Amino acid sequence: MLRTALLAAAIVGLSAPAVSAQDTGFSLPDGFGVEIGAGTDNRSKNASKTNGEAYAYGIVDYVPPTGDIYFSGSVEGVDSNGADWESKLLVGWTPQFAGFDFDINAAHKWLIDPVPGTDNGAWEFTANMSRSIGPASARLQYQYSPDSNGSTASFSWVEARVGWDFTPRLEGTAAIGRREQRNSVDYTGWNVGATYALTQNLELDVRYYDTDVDIPADEKYDDTVVAEIRLAF
């Protein structure tokens, strides 16, 4: 499968001794950031977007000199309505107020080459409120889509997450969320795991996911352990 081959190539490449963009003599234009990664499963809102298969992804971000507005474009592996890939364009705003950090964004997503006739586009709106005090952190997230991809109509997602920095390199987090959607399953999902910074640019995340859904013929809600590796510049 193409996604599995890409995962293997990404792991080999990312597992090599990591160097910074400056070490190679290459530097990104001011305001730009790039992240690439791969994982054993693509989990979103604690459910699998690849039915338990491996995936790879890439993200390009741009932050203008104003600093509180940003733009992002991405592509990621999925298994949805015949499509192996999903692209996304996003614009966001990151104000601060009363000691809290906010991230409010709007994204439009497209399935790439799905089955003809598939509803392959969707808007998704997200609001995050977060705060860190010493090694502790917390985030509250709300997401809404008026019409998701495929047969799923509108949905809402609310998630609470807490984290703790055990060392400058090791962070543990746990989250629980609730998704309610038209024409699909309502469920509660949770995850717990840790992220370790292997280098300044390279990190490894290992996480356990589960939901309260028990549908034997649908693997996307099954519990599993997911490993992801990410390289960012």
Rank of each mutant, 00 (worst) to 15 (best):
R161I: 08
S27T: 14
N183Y: 07
R3W: 07
G58I: 09
S156F: 06
K220Q: 11
I112C: 06
D222S: 10
T211W: 01
G77W: 02
N191F: 00
S74Q: 13
D214S: 15
A18I: 05
G58D: 09
S156D: 15
D210C: 01
I112G: 03
W110I: 01
A83P: 06
V91R: 03
T50K: 00
G37L: 03
D84Y: 05
I229T: 03
V225C: 05
S80V: 12
P65T: 10
L7M: 11
A8S: 11
N46L: 00
T224G: 04
I215E: 08
A18M: 10
D30K: 14
G117D: 02
T188K: 03
V185W: 00
G13W: 09
M129T: 15
L6Y: 03
F71K: 05
T24Y: 05
N183M: 02
L7H: 15
N46E: 10
N191G: 02
F102V: 07
M1Y: 08
D218M: 05
A107S: 14
P135D: 14
W110R: 06
P64Y: 10
A10I: 00
N201Q: 07
Q141S: 15
N46Q: 11
P17I: 09
N201D: 11
S130N: 05
A56W: 01
T40C: 04
A21P: 01
W123D: 14
Y196H: 10
Y209M: 01
Y142L: 15
G39N: 03
S184E: 06
N191A: 08
S132Q: 12
G134H: 10
L231Y: 15
W190Q: 05
L204S: 08
Q181K: 02
V60P: 03
G163D: 11
G163S: 08
T195Q: 07
P135T: 09
G134P: 03
T66A: 13
A21F: 12
K49C: 00
D103M: 04
S74N: 12
W157R: 07
A227E: 02
N149V: 13
F166N: 06
S74G: 13
V162Y: 06
A138F: 14
R230V: 08
I104K: 00
A9M: 11
A83Y: 04
A136P: 00
L111E: 03
D119G: 03
G172K: 00
Y142G: 15
A153H: 14
T4E: 13
V78Q: 09
W164Q: 06
N46G: 01
D103H: 07
V226K: 07
S87G: 13
V63P: 01
S87I: 15
I215Y: 01
G77H: 05
